[in-house]
Amino acid sequence: MAVVDYNAPQSVQEAVALLSGSDIKTKVMAGGTDLIIQSKSQAVEPLRVVDLKHIAEMMSYSLDDGGLSLGPCMCCAEFTALHDVETLYPGLVEAAYLIGSTQVQGRASIGGNLCNSSPAADTIPALIAIGAKCRIVGAGGERTVAVEDFVTGVGRNCMQSGELLQRILVARPAPGSRDAYLRFIPRTEMDIAVAGAGISVTLDSQGVCTAARVAIGAVAQTALLVASAADALIGTQLDDASVAKAAAAASAAASPITDRRGTIEFRRHIVGVLVKRATLIAKERAQASL
């Protein structure tokens, strides 16, 4: 794809209008860290770009009693510096912090990560773990979809042509409820996840886990919400045996591939280790929030 036409709409309505009404392939751009690289690889096919970064609401966030409402194009560097968000959603901030280098974080956004819909995207399991929802807007109006239902395949999601992601919405976690995200890479930085795990747990005052969500990444065509792993945690004190059970459930749920980043066997094992470790981090945070 070679960019032949660049548009920078000032409003969502203008952007939606631009998404339909062209016979050239049209893509929205947030940070562009995936799109620009993709556009270089197949230089022949023409591409029309709609840059969303000039739309104020796409770049902003709000956090109140209702929770987090995030403009999907805010860059990760800005997002990870939001201390109020980090207090409540440390796992999501961790995931955003892991995307690429400092330089990449200066451009890349959570919305872009979500819409690029890579199986290895770091923020997707983290968003699923905290029950995040996508508000999608198009010519036909608005709709809201849970993140676990948003991504439908490798590089594919439920958005129809002419639609765009307008907002990412997350409920405010109660005291006793916190998240964590861990991924595994061969180096310490600059790699794509071999496997990832996003966890949120809710503890009551006795330390009993009353709710949990376990999401795993890079071990299937899409990030998976693993109910069986959460079930292994709910009703327990998140003791070693229960956590091990959750890890085993996550490994069992994984259906990874072998590629240049890892083998089936290794990914299956690693995702269990990550679930175990991330659960313990989430547990500690949840206890501290009580």
Binding site: G32, E78, Q103
Partner: peptide, 20 residues
């Protein structure tokens, strides 16, 4: 590495038109 509005990024990940 360059900065755009003070934020560090890679110039290869920014379109020239975005500099406007």
């Amino acid at each position: 590495s360059v900065t755009v509005d003070g934020r560090l990024t890679c110039a290869c990940l920014v379109l020239g038109v975005e500099a406007a």
